[in-house]
């Protein structure tokens, strides 16, 4: 009889644990969505509204069309983003990358930029990722102050090489992406 009771207790506890975990996971995800995702969606929606209804869109389209629909143009964007002085300034919250990404998305949607350029563009707008966060990121990894002192310029210099390189790799990886056989 005691064994039976133990079994029931164990099952009850197990089920309670699983349900509790799932419930907490749901609470976490709704929390993230409300605090991080929806505010950004609101902000992005405003920018898209502004682009689509005013003349700004055409102006941006002209500027981006030339540079975002060719490999040299995308390389130029990535080189600018990777400049060691600019990259920490462009980094915070990935706001710049998100805005430029949205602008490019609008132009891709309108057909001004070919769809297969979406992949290299994702890398071209983002060589500065995390460049604002290097000391904090290294501190989270419990790095010594001497390591941080060397790590910051090391990562920034590395981006000058790997930023444009990532665009080239993505460019070659985009062959056959959204290919229309006509």
């Amino acid at each position: 009889m005691e064994g039976f009771t133990n079994l029931i207790v164990r099952i009850g506890r197990g089920v309670g644990g699983v349900v509790g975990t799932l419930y907490q996971a749901g609470r976490d995800s709704v929390d993230t969505v409300i605090r991080n995702v929806i505010p950004f969606m609101a902000f992005i929606s405003f920018i898209i509204g502004l682009i689509l209804t005013t003349g700004i869109g055409n102006w941006i389209a002209k500027g981006l069309k030339g540079s975002a629909s060719s490999l040299p143009g995308l390389l130029l964007i990535s080189i600018v983003c990777a400049i060691p002085i600019l990259s920490p300034l462009l980094g915070p919250g990935a706001v710049i990358a998100q805005i430029v990404g949205t602008l490019l998305g609008v132009e891709i949607g309108k057909g001004n930029i070919p769809a297969q350029y979406s992949l290299p563009a994702l890398f071209a707008i983002n060589p500065q990722v995390g460049c604002d966060f290097i000391p904090v990121g290294l501190a989270l990894g419990e790095a010594e102050p001497e390591t941080v002192e060397i790590g910051v310029p090391a990562v920034l210099f590395s981006r000058v090489i790997t930023g444009p390189l990532s665009v080239v790799i993505a460019y070659f990886a985009s062959f056959g992406l959204y290919h229309t056989s006509k």
């Binding site: 992005i44 990404g101 949205t102 891709i108 949607g109 994702l122």
Partner: peptide, 11 residues
């Protein structure tokens, strides 16, 4: 999310 989603929305 919008680093990816911005461009993905266009697609």
């Amino acid at each position: 999310l919008f680093v990816y989603l911005g461009i993905a929305t266009g697609i």
